[in-house]
Design a protein around this nucleic acid. Structure first.
Lengths: 110, 110
DNA sequence: TCTGAGTTTCTACAATGTAGAACCTTGGAG
DNA sequence: CTCCAAGGTTCTACATTGTAGAAACTCAGA
């Protein structure tokens, strides 16, 4: 992904949730995972909006319980992170790490 | 937003730049620092817009070369991160780390 | 069939990120 | 001293990402 495919902070959280949940990742579950691990409230709309945008960009894919691509209001819609999503996540993480590298904990940030 | 103030991905990069540069942080220099460390192009407008927003939120402060608060088109405007900014940066980082914790590098993300 | 819990979708809007041109300031050349 | 160029900042406009909750839908069980 040429230069320019950087992820927002929340997109990164969602992608990590997808990786953690593996084959069982669906909207509500992703939300609960993020809320449980980060102790922050997550609006369900934020999760789906982010999921939709990530799918449009080809970073993730979705399917229904039977594995079909289609999904029109099915009770559950499962998501999976794709290779480009992993690459983008690593790139975004690397940028943050490069800026944080070597900072002094005594200064309050590490 | 639940409990605290969460930062966007670029806001985090700018804050890290501020910490790295210490007393000598000003717009153009912050931009160069981010570009050098992350190898990504940074629009100067993005830096100043972010800086202004962070200042409004009390996360950073600015002053001119003489230390005066005022700054009307002065040649250089210096910025410094404040305690609330450090706290917010740590919170945002903690959220990401909590979601990334324990992931398997073999899966492509660590 | 009806119902309710769980899930997804929708609409609307706020905040953050991007882009580059216009403008200001300072130091140095002339 | 005047003028200019380089470096720096500000501005305008717009794109993308994040937030919020109500409405609609699915499915299992009474």
């Amino acid at each position: 992904m040429g230069k320019g495919e950087y992820l927002g902070a929340f997109e990164q959280l969602v992608l990590f949730g997808l990786i953690r949940l593996g084959e069982n990742a669906y909207g509500m579950k992703i939300r609960r995972e993020i809320e449980a691990r980060t102790a922050r409230d997550v609006a369900i709309g934020a999760v789906y909006a982010t999921l939709d945008r990530l799918e449009v960009k080809g970073f993730i894919s979705s399917r229904d319980a039977n594995g079909a691509e289609c999904r029109n209001g099915k009770a559950r819609r499962f998501f999976r992170i794709e290779a480009p999503g992993i690459a983008a996540l690593n790139e975004s993480r690397d940028a943050l790490r490069a800026m944080a590298r070597g900072l002094d904990p005594a200064r309050g940030v590490a």
